[in-house]
Amino acid sequence: MNKQYKFSGFLVLLLLTALSRQGYAQTFKPIFEDADGRTSIIAPLGYLGINTENSSIQFQYFMSKSAGADPDDALLLKRNRFYWGVKVAGSAAGGVSTIFNYGNFTPGTSASLFLGHRSLLFQALDKNGEPVLYGSNQIAIEDWLTLRLGGEIANYTLYDAARPFDEQIYSEQFRGHIAQLTYNVLIGGATSVGVSWDVSKVNNIDALSPVKFTQQTILPGPSGQTTRIFEREVNAFSGAYQTSIVNTYGVDAVRYVTPASELNYAFHVFGRLKHTTDIKPVYEAGAGFYLFPKGKVAGGVFLQTSDLTNAVSETPDFAKRLDLGLTVKLLLPGLGVPNP
């Protein structure tokens, strides 16, 4: 991780910490993601968040309904366990350093639709509406099964020195998609385990090198005595741009620790197995540590290796295959409603 990256990540953390001073409620956000923004632990609630590792800004809403009286028999309960949600993300592909170096976002937008069912294997309510508690410690267990369908559109300016001069700068529009099925369980409000499978169309833009240059267009006047020179600054990515279909199997585990003090923290470990049609399977793994100061922003750091067994990276040194990320999430501001 270069110094600019470290500095820009720290700057974003400072900015969001300053924003959080408006007194948002204490919250627990679904921040347990890897560098690609992928997780098996989907928390069905609304939030506005920023993942500084993949430079995405996200908005999410989940419709949820509590149990009510059964319309056919008012004495019975209808548990309303189905839920749906939407998530919209704008990303600056190429990383935060691209934003801070050049001052321009590379446009990219994605949207997802979620359909889910909670309390699938572990009931939260008995038929009388009383809490169902498990084990000798009398803890609650809840679970969610979620299907996510998503699409992504991004425009990239690419540079390829091997092409004829007039074709060296060109644009590519990426149309990606993802279908993901996840199941996660929350045990006693402190331990969560999730497994997921997804198939997605991805590109390798993160592996390409950002380049910046000035292009001049020279127009001679009809008299031959005047020449106009137009200059345009071009930010592009250099390298062989590729897209592929990837099958990803994921597992996530989180342990949330709530000591008597106001500073709560959590540990997150995750693993991924990625199958692509033309290359051998790639294992990814990572670990994160997150802090939840009361009423403030939730943030943390995570270490991730995108190629655990050195299957494709051709980088024998394990330390060089490690990536360090910062994640910060903010609560969706109350829309005119007082916070608790």
């Binding site: 609630l45 609304g46 809403y61 989940f62 419709m63 949820s64 309904k65 509590s66 149990a67 009510g68 009286a69 008012a74 309960l77 209808k78 309303n80 509406g129 609560l331 969706l332 501001p333 109350g334 829309l335 409603v337």
Partner: peptide, 12 residues
Amino acid sequence: FAIALVRTLDNV
């Protein structure tokens, strides 16, 4: 009486 409440945009 059990009353079904729906979550709105701001987690209320």
